[in-house]
Write a protein that binds this DNA or RNA. Structure first.
Lengths: 303, 303
DNA sequence: TCCGGATCATTCATTTTTGAATATCATCCA
DNA sequence: TGGATGATATTCAAAAATGAATGATCCGGA
């Protein structure tokens, strides 16, 4: 039993992601008969049915679904290889892929990266917004900005400081609804919070209750605007939907945002991490350093 | 610029590993012209030279070497995918790849795995002897037996106990050289030890000096037989080369091995770990459980 | 009910990829 | 020095993969 053609894995992943032969063909720049043949061939090679065919698309079997993470890993590694192969090895050129949380990626990194790119015009940046800690090991990104300390041995990790979060609201919202002076009063306000309860969120809520025992319970109806994305929460605060947490440095940039209970704060430790392998290659090294100093500047900025 | 054919990566890796087009062709079941064309094609697609051709083989460029880990990751992921695809998903059949240290793999696991396989005749086992902690994330193995606690979030880890190491020698050796009764006396004996100094070894030597301050310094000439492989050390002890550390449970199996300084011991915490993704698939689950109970039995066995 | 739009399957000519054979060069050893 | 060996490069016919075209089927909306 020979190793099947590695391309079969690529088209397999395409079919899995698009849900149909024709869709995968469009996405991969092939034709539908070719994609169909690839699937047949892979099924033959593996000795199992991967999809149940129907005229409105293909239904992946349980086995096919279980193979998906492997195929994705192949795809991201192949992409990482190509990134590494772009540009000369010892120059600061080619592409670097960065993963960060959404707010940091949208609000904080662009100026840092813009400065870096204006210095190194041949440097390409890919920015992927995600919080998955495993990204770096799966080579889905070269460098990651994270709020939890990565613990893998093979990573270079740098702690850049603590990002401060505080309760904020738009001045217009406060004009309409009044400014709360006690945490208990918050129960008459609209609080912007999380949709799902992850371990991280639960820990954060615990921290809140420690500092502010009167803080309204997340079950109460005043937590009325919920979004998983911190970015959506930030937009909601800016739009005057209600009161929510956001980074104090970010809020300080917007003259209409008012900080409530200035002594009440949460802090997020912030790290920049990359694969150890990459530290000898100038473009990764330079980008890593730029992120570290850029984030340190961001954190250290006083109003 | 399109994604190059993923097969090119496979032949690229083959060329890197064999050092020549013809060698890679033999290894991959292709012909030399095909391999050569694949390399050309990949170079064209990446826009860089990967090998400097010569008539006695190919010299990889620095860039090619830097791409090697990516290509290896592709290969091991492809292999893991195929492993996952062998056998029916919900039966205990197909292949499971286990990584363990050499001594455990050679001396302890075989009976455990043999019992497992006699119960599940369609289950295939691959055993890879290696200590690299990252194996599981790179999918080079499905399950690992390790002496340090893996800390990755996405792993299922089980502590199975502490393996005890003690100083041992063959009865014949002691008959020839006498039996030492104090640690200081060891300096007139042949001590079997490590070749290189890793962080782990240094920690172990520190632990030794704590319990036995008189223990000869590794720099002294009495540490005369050195091997990186614990297996080679064990073989040396069994062959009567000198005095060395080995697992007390293993030594107890051989009536000719004598334990010296029975109160003097080192312990190695032992863990079984696997990817979280795999725990719902019966064959991995079953193998994991068999390893856990098998190792617990091994550790708990009294002479 | 019928038709447009989507799917997968099949066929066949075309393109691409492959391998066998061969040429050429370097190295090692008697 | 000459010959065996092992390497890459080149050539050309055979084999394999591909895509365009077509057919068949299902779904949903007018």
């Amino acid at each position: 039993m020979n190793d099947p053609d590695w391309n079969l894995y690529r088209t397999f992943l395409g079919v899995l992601e698009s849900g149909s032969l024709s869709g995968a063909a469009r996405a991969l720049g092939l034709t539908q008969p070719t994609v169909g043949r690839h699937v047949d061939e892979l099924e033959q090679a593996l000795g199992h049915v991967l999809f149940t065919r129907s005229q409105q698309g293909l239904m992946p079997t349980e086995l096919a679904l279980s193979l998906r993470p492997y195929a994705q890993s192949l795809a991201s590694t192949a992409a990482a290889l190509r990134r590494q192969a772009t540009g000369a090895l010892n120059e600061i050129e080619g592409t670097v892929r960065i993963s960060s949380s959404d707010v940091i990626g949208v609000e904080v990194l662009p100026p840092i990266l813009a400065a870096l790119q204006s210095e190194h015009t041949k440097l390409g940046i890919e920015l992927s917004l995600s919080d998955a800690v495993e990204d770096l090991l799966r080579r889905e990104a070269d460098i990651a900005v994270r709020m939890t300390q990565p613990k893998q041995e093979s990573l270079v990790v740098r702690h850049v400081g603590e990002i401060e979060l505080g309760l904020h609201a738009h001045a217009g919202y406060l004009a309409r609804h009044g400014r709360p002076v006690s945490f208990a009063e918050l129960s008459t306000h609209c609080i912007i919070g999380y949709d799902r309860r992850t371990a991280f969120i639960r820990a954060m809520i615990g921290e809140i209750r420690k500092q502010a025992p009167d803080f309204p319970d997340p079950e109460q109806p005043c937590w009325s605007f919920r979004a998983d994305s911190n970015l959506a929460q930030l937009a909601a605060i800016r739009a005057g939907v209600g009161i929510g947490f956001c980074q104090t440095r970010l809020a300080a940039r917007d003259p209409h945002l008012v900080r409530l209970f200035p002594d009440f704060r949460l802090t997020l430790p912030t790290f920049v991490a990359m694969h150890e392998d990459l530290k000898t290659t100038p473009r990764y090294r330079r980008t890593f350093d730029a992120l570290v100093t850029g984030l340190q500047d961001y954190i250290a900025t006083r109003r």
